[in-house]
């Protein structure tokens, strides 16, 4: 038996919105420690790693480990049926074919439940090595989203280069080129609004704008985004999800061809 109760149902709605562009379907692995999801997009360029800790839920019970294969589009449809202040309860039996979503209005006067069929999904678990990233950039998530949107008008790919002075985002294409430089914030009053750079070594990497734009769908989840980069390894884009967990996106860089 699995049961998880979340007073702020809107969190899960935002989470779904943040992953449904990249993934059509995925498996939620539920265990004692919480709900996890790890999946690559179809083209195997990016990976979503979602973690919702059990202690972040208002009530959490998971007797046996459970893998729920879910069509994320359908689940998002269900989540959209909830009002923002509704309380959500997810329920599933062990080895069930379906999962139940129950929404209660705060005054308990309206209760709606939705049962959704589960799917069979091939799962590939990737081992992500622990990496000491040579540059870690913390910045306001809204700013990052804006930069990705603006630069994607100029080219398919974006160069992110991080130096001591700051971080530079650039793109070039048929129209011309674009550069956006952000310097470290000197006086940090609120961490969420600051640009903070922790750098061991300067890094420059190229990424496809398309994926970055999909990642920024997670912007409503958190005011701050953390970008971690090292030479020749995938970029990590992380958003905290309140007190309950985090969502990490991994993106393979573009590489120069060696045999052409």
């Amino acid at each position: 038996m699995f049961e998880a109760r979340l007073v702020q149902s809107s969190i899960l709605k935002k989470v779904l919105d943040a992953i449904k562009d990249l993934l059509n379907e995925a498996t939620f692995d539920c265990s004692d420690s919480g709900m996890q999801l790890q999946a690559m997009d179809n083209s195997h360029v990016s990976l979503v790693s979602l973690n919702l800790r059990s202690d972040g839920f208002d009530k959490y019970r998971c007797d046996r480990n459970l893998s729920m294969g879910i069509n994320l589009g359908s689940m998002f449809k269900i989540m959209k049926c909830a009002a923002n202040d509704d309380i959500l309860t997810i329920k599933a039996q062990d080895n069930a074919d379906t999962v139940m979503f129950m929404f209660e209005s705060p005054n308990q006067e309206k209760v709606s439940d939705y049962e959704m069929k589960l799917m069979d999904i091939d799962q590939e678990h990737l081992g992500i090595p622990e990496t000491d990233y040579s540059s870690i950039i913390k910045m306001p998530s809204g700013e990052f989203s804006r930069i990705c949107k603006d630069l994607s008008q100029f080219g398919e790919s974006m160069v992110i280069s991080c130096t001591k002075e700051g971080v530079k985002f650039s793109a070039a294409g048929d129209v011309g080129s674009a550069n956006i430089k952000l310097a470290q914030t000197s006086n940090v009053d609120k961490e969420e609004e600051a640009v903070i750079i922790e750098m061991q070594e300067p890094v420059t990497l190229t990424f496809a704008c398309r994926y970055l734009n999909s990642f920024t769908k997670a912007t409503p989840l958190s005011g701050q985004v953390i970008l971690s980069m090292s030479a020749d390894v995938p970029l990590v884009v992380e958003y905290k999800i309140g007190e309950i967990g985090q969502i990490r996106y991994y993106l393979a860089p573009k590489i120069e061809d060696e045999d052409s």
Binding site: S43, V45, L47, Y250, I255, E256
Partner: peptide, 10 residues
């Protein structure tokens, strides 16, 4: 440049 793949890294 060509897009890399995650399965090449992980």
């Amino acid at each position: 440049s060509t897009q890399g793949r995650l399965d090449g890294f992980f």
